[in-house]
Each structure stands twice: as C-alpha cells, then as structure tokens.
Design a protein around this nucleic acid. Structure first.
Lengths: 192, 192
DNA sequence: CTGTCCATGTAAGGCGTTACATGATTGT
DNA sequence: ACAATCATGTAACGCCTTACATGGACAG
C-alpha cells in the first residue's frame, strides 16, 4: 500500500496533522500519487490501529481536537523496509489508448480532435512540471539538504521526460493522420 | 467508464462470449487496460441491463448456458459517442516514484538495487512490446485492414516510446548514483 | 489420467472518489 | 462582509483484485 508508506515518509521528516499531510501531498508527490483528504484521514486511522503512528491530541474548546501524528519506532522500521524493497510490477491504465486502439472505427478528423485535446493536456502538465523543476533548480544551488532535494527532483525528471515522450508521439501521430499516411514508425526510431 | 467502452469496441467487430472477450483483452489492450475475468462478466451484465448489448443464449445440457453478446443499436451509438469525445484528465500513479522521492532516506546502494529491479521490469515490458510490434509489422505489409492495424500499432508505439523514455531515465539515475553525483539534469536535455 | 482449454459465474475485500458536514480564524 | 484557510471527519458509491466454485472436452 503506497499511500500508507508515502504518509509514513512525510511523517519521517516531521510530525504533522492530516491537514498538513494533504498539503504536503499536493505540493510534492501529487503528480504521481494524488491523495484526497478523506483518504488521508482514513489511512491515518488505519496506521494508528497498526501502531505505525501515534497521535498527540491537542484539545481546543469549541472545536474538534487537533491531532498531530508522529511516527512510532515500528512505523519508522516499516517505512525503511518498504523503501528498500522492490515493488511488484504495477499495471497501468491509459483510457486514451483505448480510443486510439479503436481509432479505425471513426474518421481521421475526429481522431485528430482527440489528439489535439490530449496534446493540450500533456503540454499543460509538462509546463507545470517544468515550472516546478526550475524552482527546485534554484533551491538546490545553495542548499544544505542537497541530497534530499536531488531525489525529489528525480521524480520531476521522470515526469518531464515521460510527458515529453508522450508529446512527441502525439505530434507524430497527428502529423501522419494529417498527411493521410497510415505508416507505423520504424522500431529503431522508437527505441532510443 | 473505459472498460465498458473497450468491451463495446471489441463487440463492434463481432459478437463474442465473455470468455472470448477476456482473450481479446489479453492479446491486445492488456498493457494499457488489463481486465480480469470476473470484471468482464460483471460489466457485461451491466451493459445488458443498460440495453447496450443483447445476448444470444445457447443452451448446453449439463453445463452452464453459453452466452454470446451482441452490440445493440444503442450500444453502437454509445460506443461512437464515447470514441469521439475527449476524456477528462486522468490521474496516474507510480508507486515506484514514491520510493525515489524518499530516496534520500536510505543509502545509495539500496536505491541502486531498486533501480536495477525496475530496469529489469521495464526492459522485459519493452521486449514484449517490441515483439508484438514486429508481428504487427509483418501483418501490416500485406493487409486489407491496413488502417485498423495502423491504429492498433499506434498504441504499441506509445508503449514502446514511453517505456524507452523510462528506461533512459532509470539508466541515467543509476549512472549518477554510481558516480556519487547528485546533479539534476539540464532542462534542455529533458525536453526533446 | 492429468492438465489445459472452454465457459460460466459469486463473494469479499481494498483502494479511491465525491459529496456532505461543521466551525473558528485570518485576510481583503 | 465575504472568502479563503485551518482542521476535522462520515457516508456512499465505483472499480478492480483475489479467491472460490463448477464441469465438460480434448490432448499428451
């Protein structure tokens, strides 16, 4: 369960509330592991039952108690175990490719429209990732925690290069359809 | 709901049983939309309730009836509607990137091990896709349904180039860690 | 005679999403 | 005065996974 371990990961930097965790997700791992609020609260309850986190309760009259979650020793151990254990192979789902797969069933103009939407999506995702990357670039210049930042940036590198690959492919498909050419690419152009 | 529409897509070529559909998935869209058997049967039941498919029942004494699913007119219409409608943006989840993100918490040797496992996974996925691609390449040479095959191949192109991008990144990370260098890549090397 | 293929499903559980619900504090 | 932020959760639903269950036909 990756969400559990991502939470443990954040708590290993510092104790936090569920609310803080939600923000931490949104500002960092969001693009490869989004988490919504209700999920975070439920998972924190689970982690507590499993003894991987413990909570410090701050009573506030007239409001719900504030709960600050801390890693336990067991939580730390579990996080380290997970962090150095290869994950089983993961399935990917790309609904858009289903549309492409059956593209023969509709006309090229319709497919080109779909591609254009997709291109916009990917371009805006790419722009966001690039913007984040540039911020990191500045931060890493004069940083103490250079090594930590480096690993954070690696995920952005992944995001940028995979979105770039998708974009290149989308453009190539669009070009071919516009040219009325139904020619697959050469393998050697795909693998490099 | 993409599974529903993928099923409609397959049925638009020819009527099939649930069993046939499972095989169709496994031999074609598996790598970007895996579907398991129980899911397919349940979804077929739903499609039937919605009037998008109808079933021809073949009674076989001493065994469960065999059910051949046909698209209805409504099913065809719904499939075409879906096929030419842009999909809302999709979230992606890459558990492996969570491990990378928190890579600073463990030592480089452990991370390198994780990378090596990942590289193996990606390489074998890539090899499978390339093999499928080559089979298609031969088929498309002397085909009547050249256009349909072309769209099928496009999804493989996508799979190959995105896996290749992932592989390049994995190797680059591994090289840097082995060299003890915590330097992010230049943006210009990522976007092209 | 053993295993794989054909062909059907049910049951239970896990993870994620969306919508609902509350209420104080801080900023414009 | 109004909106956004801080801070907590619950309920219901949807999709997917894993395991379980049945049984004939056919090939080695």
């Amino acid at each position: 369960m990756s969400l559990k371990h991502a939470i443990l990961g954040f708590l290993s930097f510092q104790p936090m509330t569920g609310y803080d965790l939600k923000k931490a997700f949104d500002h960092s791992v969001q693009f490869f592991w989004p988490a919504n609020q209700s999920q975070i609260y439920r998972t924190l309850a689970d982690l507590n039952e499993e003894g991987l986190v413990k909570l410090e309760i701050i009573a506030r009259e007239e409001r719900l108690d504030m709960k600050i979650y801390h890693l336990t020793i067991a939580g730390q151990a579990e996080f380290h175990r997970w962090l150095s254990t290869p994950l089983p192979h993961q399935d990917y789902r790309e609904a858009f490719l289903i549309q492409v797969y059956f593209g023969g069933k509709i006309g090229d103009p319709e497919t080109i429209l779909l591609l254009q939407h997709m291109i916009q999506d990917v371009e805006s995702a790419l722009a966001q990732l690039v913007a984040m990357y540039q911020i990191y670039m500045e931060k890493i210049e004069q940083a103490d925690a250079r090594r930590d930042l480096f690993f954070n940036m690696l995920t952005l590198e992944y995001g940028i290069s995979s979105n770039q690959a998708a974009l290149n492919w989308l453009n190539s498909v669009q070009d071919r359809l516009k040219a009325g050419s139904y020619s697959p690419l050469e393998l050697k152009d795909l693998t490099r």
